[in-house]
Design a protein around this nucleic acid. Structure first.
Lengths: 155, 155
DNA sequence: CCACGAAAGGTCAAATAAGGTCAAGAAACC
DNA sequence: GGTTTCTTGACCTTATTTGACCTTTCGTGG
């Protein structure tokens, strides 16, 4: 199912979710061997899927006894989360950053799969054919409006 | 029998109706091959027949392991209301018409008081300082995006 | 000390594998 | 006959995989 990168991503997230403290330490070469791929493939997965934008922090050390440490970053409570989300969106946001934000909110359980899809769909549909820099401005407005419904619903 | 596009549409809807969760993932090139046409034909079918207005959401990924994912949103009796609301909003809508639409949806129970307030707030806030005719266009996009979340929620 | 080699991980670019866009021409429909 | 919808193809953008080459760290023998 999916690409090699997807499998590695799933594997790492699986280990992370089972890890206390939300931190794991891996050997790049070991993971590469497990998935029968070149070591730099692991870097690729880390760079594309474990970014700060998506709520991960990665650090590493080279040399003998080297390692890669992956950390899950937990966010604050709902009230301040809405504020920080607004701040992150700002007056304009590009498609990639918007996507990462939606992915992160989905992983955090703020958006279920269905809503995440609707949000992504609306962002794409409503900004189609609009050229920079206005697409970013409109995307920001749409995102803030839709998420305001989600964050402020219920109690 | 209709056109090639009709056949492709029927084929995709057939697969969708048999899919659990109402989601399918296709390979554009594979479907194109099945119907012996160019790949971009698939895009045409998706753009013209699988729109949010009609209750479908499409997303895709390029590159290795790329795919096109199509989701059916079930609306039951609300489907026609959603369509007519979309039509009423159109590509642009002025503040007064937007307000009365929101009021009407609130009276009908589609929007509760809290949400109606959020929608009005977002419309006002996000179009403030934007001069005609763009305020109307943005208002329309905001309204459709927010209402899509409301209309398409639940099962 | 210090140099050096082994043991990590890092970088970058090429090759490959998708899907997207757009406009021109053809067909179907008033 | 004109308008709308469909079909095709040339060209574009993005994502993944692989490999050659680079840098950092640690331990050890001189």
């Amino acid at each position: 199912m999916g690409t090699l990168s997807d499998s590695i991503e799933r594997y790492l997230k699986g280990r992370l979710s089972r890890a206390v403290e939300g931190v794991i330490e891996i050997r790049r070469s070991e993971v590469a061997e497990q998935f029968d791929c070149v070591p730099s493939q692991i870097n690729y997965v880390l760079e594309t899927r474990f970014t700060p934008q998506r709520g991960y922090y990665v650090e590493s050390r080279r040399g003998g006894g080297g390692y890669i440490r992956i950390m899950r970053i937990y966010l604050r409570q709902k009230q301040s989360m809405w504020e920080s989300v607004c701040e992150e969106i700002g007056e304009s946001i590009d498609a990639a950053r918007a996507d990462s934000l939606v992915a992160r909110l989905e992983e955090m359980g703020v958006l279920n799969a269905r809503r995440a899809l609707l949000v992504r769909g609306a962002l794409r549909h409503e900004t189609a054919g609009i050229s920079p820099p206005w697409d970013g401005v409109i995307r920001a407005k749409l995102l803030k409006s839709m998420l305001s419904l989600v964050f402020h619903e219920g109690g």
